[in-house]
Every structure is written in structure tokens, then in C-alpha cells.
């Protein structure tokens, strides 16, 4: 089960609303490489992970990603508060505003709603962990691009924190994959899928 702790992982206080920035940061809420996908990916993959270390890692990183989802939602919420219709139109936030007003909705910066097609849960230990490595790099890339486009120091302070977490998670998933390789006990790590096979499968 999950229990809510009533604080953010990293404090956020954005002085100046900025709907242009909100529109691009939104992609880390509901975009293809965003935090919603990250948490659902890890919290789904963990069920069939073969080793308790990996079950723990996916549970703990997946839980941290839920905290990041809350942080990104907070950024968008604070960046879009007290807007006038004029500001909404001029900033390009109007297309989002028409359907969602100032509500928080999981969607990419390009307007595609969140979907599970952006994540994989394959039931194959090596495929899943390799997906996770790529996912962390893709999220890091999005934060890099936000830093390229944002000139608000209060926003960038938070984005730099979130970006660095992707690098740490990438390291941990790499170590998790190493742990699977160590336990394969054979030269061919693909000989069986430890999420599914109890023994080397016989082909009919």
C-alpha cells in the first residue's frame, strides 16, 4: 500500500507565473518520457521481477517517481496561476486552456494525451531493465531540453534536481542488470528469462 507524506521531495516556490514554460514542462507530467510513465512502468514491471533486490529497486524508484510526478504537477500549477485570458492567448497556452482551463492533465508538450504505449512491461527481465535504462536517459534528455529553453532560475533549480535523479536511477538500473548477469551462471545470459523460466526451456 501507499501512504501519503504531505510534502514534496524537493521544495518548490515559483514567484512568476509563466504559461509558456508550463506548456513545455507539462511533457514531464504526461509526455512519452515523463514521470507518470516512469512510475507506472516501474510499479508494473516489479510484479514479475525474479529477485527481491530488483523488486525492491523498482518499488523504491517507482515510488520516488510518483513524488516527481507531484513535483512536475506543482511546477505546472504554480506557473499557470492567476492568468488573464490575454496572457493565455499570447503565451500559446490557449490550445490547452480550451479543454483543461488551469487544470493539470497528463499530456505531452505537443498535445498527445498520456498513453501506456510509451512504456514497456514485457515480463522479460533483461528487456525490462534495458527499457528502464533507456527511459532514464530519455527523461534526462527532456530535462536537458527544458533547461535549454527556460530562463527562470526558480524553475531551473527544481529541473536540475529532477534531472540528476534520472542519472542516479540510470546507475541503479545498470547495477540491477549487472546483478541479473551475475546470477545467470552461464555464458549465455539469454538462455532463459528468469522472470518466467524455472529451467532452460525445451523448444517443441
Amino acid at each position: 500500500m501507499f501512504v501519503y507524506e504531505k510534502r514534496l521531495q524537493y521544495p518548490i516556490k515559483i514567484t512568476h507565473p509563466n504559461p509558456r514554460l508550463a506548456k513545455i514542462i507539462m511533457s514531464q507530467y504526461g509526455g512519452p518520457d515523463g514521470e507518470l510513465g516512469a512510475s507506472v512502468r516501474y510499479l508494473s514491471q516489479r510484479f514479475t521481477m525474479p529477485y527481491r533486490e530488483l523488486q525492491g529497486l523498482l518499488t523504491d524508484i517507482g515510488t520516488e517517481e510518483l513524488g516527481h510526478l507531484e513535483m512536475v504537477g506543482t511546477l505546472v500549477y504554480q506557473l499557470t496561476r492567476n492568468l488573464t485570458p490575454d496572457e493565455i492567448e499570447k503565451s500559446g497556452y490557449d490550445a490547452y486552456f480550451i479543454d483543461h482551463t488551469a487544470g493539470i492533465y497528463p499530456v505531452s508538450a505537443g498535445g498527445t494525451p498520456w498513453g501506456a504505449d510509451g512504456i514497456a512491461s514485457t515480463g522479460d527481465t533483461i528487456a525490462d531493465l534495458t527499457e528502464d535504462l533507456a527511459a532514464e536517459q530519455k527523461a534526462r534528455k527532456t530535462y536537458d531540453n527544458i533547461l535549454r529553453l527556460s530562463d527562470d532560475p526558480e524553475v531551473n533549480d527544481v529541473i536540475r534536481f529532477l534531472r540528476e535523479r534520472e542519472i542516479v536511477h540510470y546507475q541503479r538500473f545498470g547495477e540491477g542488470l549487472g546483478l541479473v548477469r551475475d546470477r545467470a551462471k552461464q555464458k549465455n545470459i539469454y538462455a532463459l528469462n528468469p522472470s518466467f523460466d524455472k529451467d532452460i526451456p525445451k523448444i517443441k
Partner: peptide
């Protein structure tokens, strides 16, 4: 560690040359 996003110097790999200052803003 909180300011930088990691406790471990070996994993501290910022984008560009800017790092967050020692203690987060409001706290």
C-alpha cells in the same frame, strides 16, 4: 546532496556548468 540531486559525488553530472547552490531556496 539535496541541492545537487545526489548524495554521491561520482554520480553528480550536471547539465552545463551550473549547479544548485548549497541549500534549496526557501528552506
Amino acid at each position: 546532496g539535496l541541492a545537487r540531486g545526489t548524495l554521491f559525488p561520482g554520480l553528480d553530472l550536471p547539465f552545463g556548468i551550473t549547479q544548485n547552490p548549497g541549500v534549496p531556496n526557501v528552506l
